[in-house]
């Protein structure tokens, strides 16, 4: 046995012995790690807890020292007060309509384009794909002024279509779904073509069902992106009836500068739907982010 190998085997056995000999030390390290992670988790959760807690406090309890996490007395009245002056339900409905249509449209248009780029052969395909990728880099701030002018010319400022139309296609979705379709085996498609199937049939019957996980991940992203989007709705919507939740909330805050219990009631209501989506679909969301790095 050479000296290096000997040293290695000694190191190996002493390493094994060490971990066997000091279970207490390892236990302590583990405990310390858990304590840190739990502390970090509390830092992440506390602001949400404080938001909910504040939303149930009567006015005079807002500014007491020491602040109480559990509201006493506990009152749901703030929700009613907010609902009296601000159509929160309407905001939520608007957000829901816009996000649902925008996400479904994006899934459909992106999946079709993705199929085109992954499975069809036509002249200029790769150049066109580069154009799609190029649009990914353009920030909204660059296009927002002409987009607003365009909506004005079309007479769409302050309408649902103004919120929805600019978001019915997604270069990012096309890119993400193209990757998913490229990873599918071609044998199934070819068998179907031999049986006389058209591209549309192959797309509908084979490719779409097989890319369901990618479609789900992308659909959730698209929904969340729309649900949380702020700048464009802020610019293009002015009447209260058409406002989405983020814009409505921002106005609510403008109105009730210091009535934090009312503002937090609005904030609490507005996170419920997105939290529900997240609770159901978090695996898809996190896996999707890890794979593609898109922000929710």
């Amino acid at each position: 046995m050479g000296s290096i190998e000997l040293a290695r085997s000694v190191a190996r056995s002493s390493g094994a012995a060490r971990s066997r000999r000091r279970p207490l030390g390892r236990l302590a390290a583990r405990g310390g790690l858990y304590a840190l992670l739990i502390l970090g988790g509390l830092v992440m959760l506390f602001p949400f807890a404080w938001m909910v807690s504040t939303s149930f406090k009567p006015d005079r309890e807002l500014f007491v020292t020491p602040p109480q996490l559990i509201p006493a007395p506990f009152t749901p009245e703030n929700y009613a007060r907010v609902a009296e002056t601000f159509p929160l339900a309407r905001f939520m409905l608007n957000s829901l309509i816009v996000a649902a249509i925008s996400a479904s449209a994006q899934i459909l248009t992106s999946a079709m384009a993705a199929y085109g780029f992954a499975r069809l052969r036509f002249r200029g395909r790769d150049a066109l794909f580069l154009v799609y990728l190029a649009t990914l880099m353009v920030p909204l701030q660059v296009t927002i002024v002409p987009l607003f002018v365009e909506m004005r010319v079309l007479g769409l400022v302050n309408t649902y279509p103004a919120l929805i139309l600019p978001t019915i296609a997604s270069a990012f979705g096309t890119f993400m779904l193209r990757q998913a379709i490229l990873s599918l085996p071609r044998e199934l498609d070819e068998a179907a073509f031999i049986d006389g199937a058209s591209h549309w049939t192959v797309f509908r019957r084979i490719v779409l069902p097989l890319s369901r996980p990618a479609l789900a991940a992308f659909g959730i992203f698209a929904f969340m992106a729309s649900w949380n989007s702020f700048l464009w709705p802020l610019v293009v919507i002015s009447s209260q009836d058409l406002m989405t939740l983020p814009v409505g909330l921002s106005n609510l805050h403008g109105r009730y500068e210091t009535a934090w219990n009312l503002v937090m009631a609005g904030a609490t209501i507005s996170v419920i739907p997105i939290m529900a989506v997240y609770a159901v679909a978090q695996k898809h969301v996190i896996r999707g982010v890890a794979l593609s790095g898109l922000k929710g």
Binding site: R125, V149, L165, A171
Partner: peptide
Amino acid sequence: TATLFLAPSLVPLALFTLGPMVAS
């Protein structure tokens, strides 16, 4: 076939991203 699959995303991208980019 290519048009069928690509137009639904290409037209909105041209109208609401590429066009405004050039216009900007």
